[in-house]
Design a protein around this nucleic acid. Sequence first.
DNA 1: ACCTGAACACCGTTCAAGT
DNA 2: ACCTGAACACCGTTCAAGT
Lengths: 191, 191
Amino acid sequence: MSTSRANAPYHHGNLRNALLDAALVILEREGEAGLGLRDLARAVGVSPAAPYRHFDSRAALLEALAVTGFQRFTRAMDEVAASGPADLASAMGKTYVLFALQNRALFRLMFSPQLRRDHRPGLRMASDAAFATLRHVIGGDLKEGRVAALAAWARVHGLAVLLLDGQIALQAGEDIEALVTAIVENRPVAP
Amino acid sequence: MSTSRANAPYHHGNLRNALLDAALVILEREGEAGLGLRDLARAVGVSPAAPYRHFDSRAALLEALAVTGFQRFTRAMDEVAASGPADLASAMGKTYVLFALQNRALFRLMFSPQLRRDHRPGLRMASDAAFATLRHVIGGDLKEGRVAALAAWARVHGLAVLLLDGQIALQAGEDIEALVTAIVENRPVAP
DNA sequence: ACCTGAACACCGTTCAAGT
DNA sequence: ACCTGAACACCGTTCAAGT
């Protein structure tokens, strides 16, 4: 619990994980731009240079965060699929959007073009793995071919992004989860 | 044409516009993170402090860029609508996605959460204006109410974002414009 | 093997001073 | 009114040195 550096041991022991945990908290609170390596080191109670023993650069740290994001995302998708819902595609779509809403900054980081530019293989692999299962399920479920599958994916992803960006204003008394369900299932809202 | 600073006049005369023009070029070439105020000043041939006569901060400069982005976007939408296409909603959707592909970094900046956080009124107004017309046309055209309109918007926006992020891989010999058309119109691709 | 402390080359931003 | 030059408080990153 001590994040002060006064009585900290010289060797942290678990610094890599401590950095990632603290980074996730800062990320969701401050956004990606607010996640500085020096701030992070300070938060964990370690010198500014210490993180470089575990990550090559700030970009490498961000990539590690995005990879864990994709892993969590994959797990969430696998869990819905395994629970055997009546309408599999809709259930996955809903989970997709709710994941984005519950992991706002992380979700954005997963799709960050700046990270993608670096061509880091870990990110690519994690992303491919996540969407491979998703593509498989949606494609198989719809049985309407590539265009329909991409359209379904685009609708779900677009809904997530527009909600994250605050572009879709909720109406008075409107429940966001009900709205998501309605849009994902593409049917009029409310009874 | 001279961007060297040796024989530059003390007063630039049109610095604000010169900064915005140069910023757009750098933005599309380097991405948002690569657009530094000092680099920008250098590119225009002016001192590092000069931009502050025209923009309060780097964020204010980015906001101005995003606002011009929304204005261009609005104009593109108005032009399609005015051209009276057979399927208005599809034509606008297609224009939406192509605008994103032709103004990649600018499009992302328009939806940047970091900018949105600052609650700058100019950005809000430009964004509201752009989507007011869009919402009106799509909502009116579909005549299926709010959920269908939001679903259509989400599909188009999601397609734009996924294409920008390189998440949708083109198949061998596949034309991106044909794919966009097919997905926006939600029909199988090719004859 | 892992971490510190001091340094380096940058930033965005401020402010007195120049024209 | 608009711009410069020098300064300030920061960054990310490197590297010798410490344990």
